[in-house]
């Protein structure tokens, strides 16, 4: 199976090419440069493997939550590549991908990924690692204040992601005994988008290019005036 994955929702911009279990990665932490970096990364990976887009089975992309513009860069690029080459797309949660990275790099098995969502809120999810070494969601991802995030069942939960940098003390207090450490310096990577994307693709979770859409979680982005046109 051949999957090209992209991820631009946070400070890191990355692309990964998964070919029959082997992964090549391009990864740079460079805020506000994602639109400059992403296509060259994809081109390099394909050239290195000596294949074209049409040789792929699918495009996987980090569909959010995350920075709105960053998420839309991944969505736009995934849409364009998939539409051009008639490929299916696999939307992957950026919170799931972050959790997967926490497992891959630190061996955490019960993960609470958090991104700073600004406006004193975090994007928040809960994941456990299954028998195949892939994270599975245990409750719906959400955007909420750090004081009111959904609590997981049981003990020994590890935090990952920059939300734990901004709100560590509040989140720790909220979790109480369930908290057993965190890695706030971890960003989402296309490597994990590729891993999860491949699994989702095998489960039939791919869609047409037009359906490659963002998940923002925060949907109230403008206040309606009390009275319009008198």
């Amino acid at each position: 199976m051949k999957i090209l994955a992209i991820e631009t929702a946070t400070e890191a911009c990355s692309a990964a090419l998964l070919i029959d279990g082997a992964i090549s990665l391009r990864y740079q932490v460079q805020p506000r440069m994602h639109s400059q970096l992403i296509l060259p990364m994809m081109e390099e990976l394909l050239n290195e493997a000596g294949i074209g887009l049409s040789a792929l089975d699918a495009i996987a992309f980090g569909r959010g939550p995350g920075a709105f513009t960053g998420v839309r860069i991944a969505v736009g690029v995934a849409q364009g590549a998939a539409f051009a080459a008639d490929l299916p797309v696999v939307p992957v949660s950026t919170l799931a991908a972050l959790a997967q990275r926490g497992y891959r790099e630190f061996g955490f098995r019960q993960l609470l990924p958090a991104y700073d969502a600004r406006m004193q809120e975090v994007y928040w999810g809960g994941y456990v690692v299954d028998g195949q070494g892939l994270v599975r969601s245990v409750f719906d991802e959400e955007v909420s204040t750090p004081e009111s995030v959904t609590l997981p069942d049981g003990l020994n939960w590890q935090g990952v992601g920059a939300g734990w940098d901004s709100y560590r003390s509040v989140l720790e207090a909220r979790l109480g005994n369930a908290f057993s450490g965190c890695e706030p310096g971890l960003f989402c990577s296309a490597e994990d988008v590729a891993l999860l994307g491949a699994a989702l693709f095998n489960e039939g979770e791919s869609v047409a290019a037009e359906q490659a859409l963002p998940v923002y979680l925060r949907d109230k982005v403008a206040a309606k005036p009390k009275q319009v046109n008198q």
């Binding site: 296509l39 513009t69 839309r72 736009g76 690029v77 364009g80 051009a84 080459a85």
Partner: peptide, 14 residues
């Protein structure tokens, strides 16, 4: 950026 991402990627892919 939406139009630029889609447009630039279409051209790249084609």
């Amino acid at each position: 950026l939406v139009g630029a991402a889609i447009g630039r990627t279409l051209a790249w892919a084609w």
